[in-house]
């Protein structure tokens, strides 16, 4: 077990956005959390990264409780989040963005290997390495965001809505990369609104509705489940 939550609850002031969530991520596994917007998916990811302090429950990384740690400390442990909306540093070049990913985890010495790996995966980024990140297309920015997270050599990669706002062809490229990262041994937690896509990529899934898990199971089973559609369309 690399990452697990036990009865995790998260509240924004009086609003409880996540209620009693328990999920498990094994070494090398790729799991997904799906659900309509407002279901609490992003809140879960933010709690895992230490951005919001949980109101209840526990988060454990390799058996160690981490729910009181600051975001940068969690990132340094190797739990790296690739946030929703990409959030690349628009005024920095592609190369600078990538290098920061490694620098944040103190991996200055392994800059070269990291860059080789990312450029190997996304040749498009190599072509645009000197360009300002803000001038990239949406898909390229998503590649950069994933690449930047990869530079930190994550043990666990948290992906928040990587398909959001991308053209279908780009979605394919991005998801292919996600599978490849997972095949190379990184455990991945994928949060997605595009449920079919997410369930085809992951091996196990949780369906969230208004902060609660209403359904969980192997991705194959979930994809066929009638209840899935109800979680989205009522």
């Amino acid at each position: 077990m690399i990452l697990e939550t036990e009865n995790l609850s998260v509240a924004y002031g009086p609003i409880e956005a996540v209620k009693g969530l328990s999920l498990r991520l094994e070494e090398g596994q790729l799991i997904t959390i799906v659900g309509a917007n407002g279901a609490g998916k992003s809140t879960t990811i933010r709690a895992l990264s230490g951005e919001i302090r949980p109101s209840g429950g526990e988060i454990r990384y390799r058996g160690r409780a981490i729910s009181r740690m600051a975001p940068h400390e969690i990132a340094r442990l190797g739990i790296v989040q690739c946030p929703e909306g990409r959030r690349v540093f628009a005024g920095l070049s592609v190369l600078e963005n990538l290098k920061l990913g490694a620098y944040g985890r103190g991996l200055q010495g392994e800059m070269k290997q990291g860059l080789d790996r990312v450029f190997g995966m996304f040749p498009r980024l190599a072509e645009r390495r000197e360009q300002l990140a803000g001038t990239l297309s949406g898909g390229e920015q998503q590649m950069l965001a994933i690449g930047r997270a990869l530079m930190a050599r994550p043990e666990v990669l948290l992906l928040d809505e990587p398909s959001l706002g991308l053209a279908p062809i780009m979605v394919q490229t991005v998801f292919e990369a996600i599978r490849e990262i997972n095949r190379a041994g990184t455990a991945v937690l994928l949060v997605e609104q595009n449920a079919f896509l997410a369930l085809r990529t992951a091996s196990y899934g949780y369906v969230l509705q208004t902060g609660r898990v209403v359904l969980e199971g192997t991705a194959k089973d979930l994809a066929m489940d009638e209840q899935m559609m109800r979680a989205y369309l009522g």
């Binding site: 940068h72 990132a75 340094r76 790296v80 540093f89 620098y103 200055q108 930190a152």
Partner: peptide
């Protein structure tokens, strides 16, 4: 410098800086 690049990144997006492991 890496440190200076990180400072510029803070002014772009403090949240993501922390997510990259940087001590904001």
């Amino acid at each position: 410098t890496h440190f200076g690049t990180a400072v510029r990144a803070v002014s772009e997006d403090r949240r993501t800086d922390a997510l990259m492991g940087l001590n904001v």
